[in-house]
Amino acid sequence: MEISQQSHSVCPAMSFDGYVVRRLENGIYGQVSKATTDEVVPRCYLRGFDALIDSLALLGQTGETHQATPVSSLEREFLVEGVTQKPIVVHLGWRAKGYRVLQRPNGRLAGIGHLQPARPEASDIAIEAQALVTMQRLYESAGIYAWYDEYLVIASRSKMRMLGHALKALCDANPDISEDVDDYDQIAMFDSEACEWHFVPRDALLTLEGWPYFR
């Protein structure tokens, strides 16, 4: 996936096979993790590695098994109604404070994302260019470049190695369970090549185009 720094040189929307985090109980898929408090808008991840981190956090806190699931495996009706792609939140990173990722009491890490509105006359499930550019600029502000290519390298390795990588990431995140996840001053992103967390000030969002974000 090549994303130019100039938003006008990116296609208006790019088809993708991202991921969602889905509960798995007795071999049966259940609810997909949502990104809004009213449990309406699903959170989608461009990197399956990020979805894996979130699923491991839920397992550790709740004991419930969750799985990073490709969007292509979902029923089309889940994200598309008629000829309109439903709104989604594109995962950007996680809220943090004092270099610790915040975690909700229900086990979910407190993510932050780009709210993509409904796309009318959508022939496929796609991510809008603005969301891609926003993510790239946010990662570059943290000194992380070629973030998607790095993920593909990890994804090409064995599942056990990728799982171990994600477990280390979650351990290093040192999640802080908080009742008020809106009280954050940093955004955390994981550099899969260097295998370390990067943190940027919360105000970094204000310098990016594409507001509103789910906060």
Rank of each mutant, 00 (worst) to 15 (best):
K159V: 11
G27H: 05
L79D: 07
L59K: 10
L138E: 07
A204Y: 00
D183Q: 09
L163P: 04
Q103R: 14
S178L: 06
D124I: 09
L170W: 03
L46D: 09
W94D: 06
G164Y: 01
E179C: 07
V83C: 03
A194H: 05
P70A: 07
S73M: 12
V89T: 13
H91D: 01
F16T: 11
W147L: 15
Y139M: 04
Q103Y: 10
V20F: 04
Y148M: 13
A142L: 06
E179P: 04
A131W: 01
V20A: 04
Q85G: 12
D180F: 04
R76H: 15
S158G: 15
A142V: 04
Q116D: 06
L92V: 02
G98Y: 06
V101H: 09
G113K: 04
F78D: 09
S141I: 05
Y148H: 14
N26T: 05
Q130Y: 03
H198Y: 06
S73G: 06
V101G: 08
G60K: 14
C11H: 10
K159H: 12
H8F: 06
L152K: 13
A131G: 13
L167F: 07
D182K: 15
I53T: 11
Y213L: 12
C11T: 08
A142Q: 08
L206D: 07
Y148E: 09
S15L: 03
S158F: 08
P105C: 11
K86M: 08
C195L: 12
A118Q: 14
R137Y: 08
Q6K: 05
K168S: 11
E179N: 11
D149F: 10
Y139A: 03
A173D: 14
A68W: 02
I112Q: 01
P175D: 02
I53D: 07
P120M: 04
A126N: 03
R76F: 15
L205T: 00
D54N: 13
V89D: 13
V181L: 05
L92S: 00
T37W: 07
L102G: 08
V32K: 00
G27C: 08
L102V: 14
I187K: 01
T37I: 04
G111V: 15
N26V: 02
C195V: 15
A126M: 05
D203W: 00
S33M: 09
S33F: 02
Q116C: 05
P175L: 04
L59S: 07
P120W: 09
V40T: 14
D185N: 13
P87G: 10
V101A: 09
R43I: 14
Q67W: 13
G111H: 14
P117Y: 05
I125F: 08
V101I: 14
V71M: 14
S55V: 01
G93P: 02
A188D: 06
K159S: 13
L208Y: 06
S158E: 10
T37D: 08
A122I: 02
V90D: 00
V40R: 11
Q130W: 00
N26S: 12
S55H: 01
Q67T: 11
E39K: 08
I177Y: 00
M1S: 13
A194L: 10
G30H: 13
H114I: 03
D149W: 10
G82Y: 09
R22Y: 12
L115A: 15
A188E: 02
H165D: 07
I127D: 00
